[in-house]
């Protein structure tokens, strides 16, 4: 783990849109690097789990011995941000996954995989994000996206779509040092959510 003031943030590079997260993190003033091996996990202050195919990511994480060390680091308080497939990986419980699909877990939530539908239903839309309202909505890109079906008492809801309607769905949450969004800020060029996460990482280092 680095001791300098710029946090080193890994992007889990087993599969998915790793490059876009590396760029977004660099623009949010972090040192970003891809991480694929268990030993590389020890060298980072925080981790992003990117978008991708969650079944593939989960399988590769188990196969190459990343799952257990990652769970240990999460339990020890390492900040992690998951987008889309990454949100699924951070959920304690998932619906519509494969029967044998394991997650890292850490956030007390139930996430429904592909909840918004198949690719033809994928969409982009403004999202009111708690704490980032000042500069307007965050631009949400939802691709075969999951949503959060329910959350435990310790989970803070940061964004919902169609709030106060029958179609309301939670799409961004935080529990302690863990952050998850259904959508992909890394695809938009608006790096406010990444900056928010980098601030979380800085706070965790100073607090811990």
């Amino acid at each position: 783990m680095s001791s300098s003031s710029t946090p080193v943030i890994g992007v889990l590079a087993l599969q998915g849109d790793v490059r876009e997260h590396l760029i977004a993190l660099a623009e949010a003033d972090a040192v970003a690097r891809p991480v694929r091996r268990p030993e590389e996990l020890a060298e980072i202050d925080a981790l992003v789990i990117p978008g991708g195919e969650s079944t593939t990511m989960s399988k590769l994480a188990l196969l190459f011995g990343v799952m257990e060390p990652l769970r240990a680091r999460v339990a020890a308080g390492m900040p992690v941000y998951g987008t889309c497939a990454g949100m699924i990986m951070l959920a304690d419980k998932i619906l519509d996954g494969r029967d044998d699909q394991e997650t890292v877990g850490g956030i007390d939530m139930v996430v429904r995989r592909n909840a918004f539908g198949r690719q033809n239903e994928s969409f982009e839309q403004g999202v009111a994000f708690k704490g980032l309202e000042e500069d307007g909505d965050v631009h949400g890109v939802f691709i075969r996206a999951p949503w959060v079906e329910s959350v435990g008492a310790d989970v803070e809801v940061l964004a919902s779509l169609y709030a106060d309607t029958a179609d309301e769905h939670i799409v961004a949450v935080r529990q302690g040092n863990l952050l998850a969004t259904s959508f992909h800020p890394e695809l938009t060029g608006d790096h406010r959510v990444h900056a928010y996460f980098v601030e979380m990482v800085r706070a965790a280092r100073h607090g811990g």
Binding site: G16, Q125, D137, F142, I143, L187, T188, G189
Partner: peptide, 29 residues
């Protein structure tokens, strides 16, 4: 491309970003 954030309440489907973004999720696979 880097579009400015939209505050539209209407979801937009089938946009270039949503189509290209889907392929981004397949990378490394």
């Amino acid at each position: 491309s880097t579009n400015t954030p939209s505050t539209s309440d209407q979801p937009a489907v089938g946009t270039a970003r949503v189509k290209r973004g889907m392929a981004e999720q397949l990378k490394g696979g």
